[in-house]
Amino acid sequence: MTGIEWIKAASVLGAGMSVGFAAIGAAVGEGYTAGKANEALSFRPNLVGDILKTMLVGQAVAETAGIFGLVIAMLLLFSPIEGKSVLTAWAYMGAGLSMGLSAIGCGIGAGLPAGTACQGIGRQPMVSGQLSTLMLIGSGVAQSTAIYGFLIALLLLYKQLPMGMAIVPACSMVGAGLCMGFGGIGPGIGEGMAAMEAVSAVARNPLTVGLMTRTMLVGQAVSESTGIYSLVVALLLVLSV
């Protein structure tokens, strides 16, 4: 095989991994939201408008991680490969791994508060506005590790690489992809769990909404720290090439 064919193969593989892994997380998150919305509707059939609206907004947020995966897959499939170094193949694999794996956690994490918000609206229809705002903030923050995965994927895609094959840059680019990819899973789920409990607490006791927003944001910021360490290590690996 020639270099061009290797790059082509790697771009196809990277695109598949990117959109495939990302779809797992987004689908699980959206399914959880829809399930909880159905559960809430069975108790309160007259609130169908509010619950359906919250469910759709929450699913749209959970879908964002999947859309990031799709964007990276498109960029991988349609980027020009003539005259590129063989190392590009490894960079493409790293980009697919980084985006795909990190989107798993964030899809699930964004789905958890959305489902609980649907349930909470069934319990307390009067505060549906506050519940959806809190849900949007929580699932938006839970997306941040997917954004870091997106960033590493973009850096790997558009990096100027030296010509010729060498094993150290190749391994460090795949390592950067694995690092940010796996590193995004845990914080995404964890931040989603924090947001889920905050939304359910507000649904139980709506007066605590300000206090709960503050506690949730502090807790999420601390849970994100391992994702940040992964970002630091991945950036060191990418920028050292």
């Binding site: 954004i147 870091y148 960033l151 910021a221 994100e224 720290s225 970002l231 630091v232 950036l235």
Partner: peptide
């Protein structure tokens, strides 16, 4: 280590994201 890397990584990551996406 955790307290300093958390702040550093968040701010640096944010500024690199702004730089890269604005360029694209």
């Amino acid at each position: 280590v955790s307290i300093s890397f958390r702040l550093f990584g968040n701010i640096m990551g944010g500024s690199i994201i702004i730089l890269v996406i604005s360029y694209l």
